[in-house]
Computed example of a mutant assay.
Amino acid sequence: MSEYPLAVIAIRQVEKRTGASRNALEQTAALRELGYRVVILAERGAPDIVRSVGAELVRLHRWPLQGTFSAILVQSPCPRVVSPSSACLADQPWRCGNR
């Protein structure tokens, strides 16, 4: 077990020093100054860039199904709590939901 607290940053890719990657790297540097051990979770990343700010890179695998099929597959088991056609009034909460 490490004596330093752990901070985890999840980002899709850390390959350049622009945009969200730069943001994640700046946060990493700030967390390291506060004494955190930083791990970056990413689908794609350049290990040399991540090591340059003192973090560890853990590569994640992508969800194999993409697009409409994955959206249907993931969302279909989830029932809607409130249907879009139901009347949901703040002063009458009993009218919200499916009956």
Rank of each mutant, 00 (worst) to 15 (best):
S86K: 15
A71F: 04
A87F: 13
R44S: 07
S70Q: 14
V14T: 01
L89S: 14
D91K: 12
S52I: 00
I40K: 00
I11D: 02
L60Y: 06
I49C: 01
A42Q: 01
T68D: 13
D48Q: 07
V8L: 13
P79F: 06
I49Q: 03
Q75C: 13
A55H: 02
V38A: 07
V50S: 01
C88P: 10
T18S: 14
V50C: 02
G67Q: 00
R12N: 08
S2H: 10
S76V: 07
E15D: 11
R95T: 05
L31D: 02
P77I: 02
A7Q: 10
C78T: 14
A24H: 10
E43T: 01
I40H: 01
S21L: 08
P84E: 15
A55I: 02
Y36F: 06
R51Q: 07
P79H: 08
S85C: 14
A30T: 00
R62M: 03
R12M: 07
V53K: 00
L60C: 08
P47G: 03
A10T: 09
V50H: 03
V38N: 06
V53H: 01
N98H: 12
A24F: 09
R17C: 12
L60F: 03
L89F: 13
Y36R: 01
A24M: 10
Y36I: 04
R44M: 04
S76I: 05
V53N: 00
